[in-house]
Nucleic acid binder design. Structure first.
Lengths: 158, 158
DNA sequence: GTGGGTGCAAAGTGTTTGCAAGTGT
DNA sequence: ACACTTGCAAACACTTTGCACCCAC
């Protein structure tokens, strides 16, 4: 929905590239356009596929070489949900402190923010002699609501 | 320190194996002994190395085949700290809800528990229609204390 | 023009697996 | 005995990299 914000994030990334005197190539543009026009989490392979729809010349190598730039810029965050491959989350520019809750059955992922948790994290860290740079909280559970509605489809546990 | 508890955890795992009619082989014993006599996080490779000190016949394959059993039993937890390899944490039997705070500079890891955070997690999850099965919270930051003491050694950021 | 960027395919790295031989129960 | 286990090495899956050509600046 906040398409304007997304577009602004894209501009931020372009500024990031310029600042490091890195070049705005057509392949990078295709990748960036893709990343900053979705709110979905994606894998490297998905990003390749989507970007190729915009520019067939995008190669897997370029995707893998661009991902570190994206995370380095702070606009995209690498996530690990316990799969073999990494996921990338393009929503950190808008919501730097959001967390994830994952249904262990249908694998639905919901993002949420909570100021109270953030505050507690800061307190505890301070008590332990740390200052917080970033945090990641993942909750795994069952999406009972969806189950009641019969909408929790996948592999309902053996 | 709580060596007795650790030993009890080992017994729990042996019971877990028996329950599934899996065999208590000498290799598995070496691995289990290793896992439940440390409180450190370890990698598959470290576990192999340590286990081989107890029983040279332990192979990499057996380590990799035993790790899923350990996590399945709930006594060891797979962790991802953003490295290429996974870490395993043998402290979940004693502290099922503990969290991690990691220094981005010296990579020191401190474990902590906080009931308030757990409670908030439950509340929020419920609000979102989920019931919590497990959670993982990782905070990354700087260990200011250690810095002041000059004890924060490794790669102090370029 | 030049230094960074690209695609390709080969190499890496951590982890998994097929198979024949071995072993706990 | 039988089914589960093992070590070995080959296979995997994802990611990284060397190289020759290319292109944004």
């Amino acid at each position: 929905m906040p398409l304007a914000e997304k577009s602004a994030t894209k501009d931020k990334f372009i500024a990031f590239l310029e600042e490091k005197s890195l070049r705005i190539t057509s392949q990078r543009l295709a990748i960036i356009d893709t990343v900053f026009s979705t709110e979905e989490h994606f894998t490297a392979e998905q990003l390749l596929e989507w970007s190729r729809k915009k520019d067939k010349s995008v190669s897997r190598a370029t995707v893998y070489r661009t991902l570190p730039l994206l995370t380095e810029s702070g606009l995209v965050r690498e996530m690990d949900f316990g799969k073999d491959y990494k996921f990338y989350d393009p929503n950190y520019a808008q919501h730097p402190n959001h967390n994830h809750i994952i249904c262990q059955d249908c694998e639905k992922i919901v993002e949420f923010e909570d100021e109270k948790i953030s505050r507690l994290e800061n307190e505890i860290s301070h008590k332990l002699g740390f200052s917080v740079k970033s945090q990641r909280l993942q909750i795994t559970g069952s999406c009972d609501e969806l189950k009641k509605l019969g909408a929790c489809k996948k592999k309902s546990h053996c």
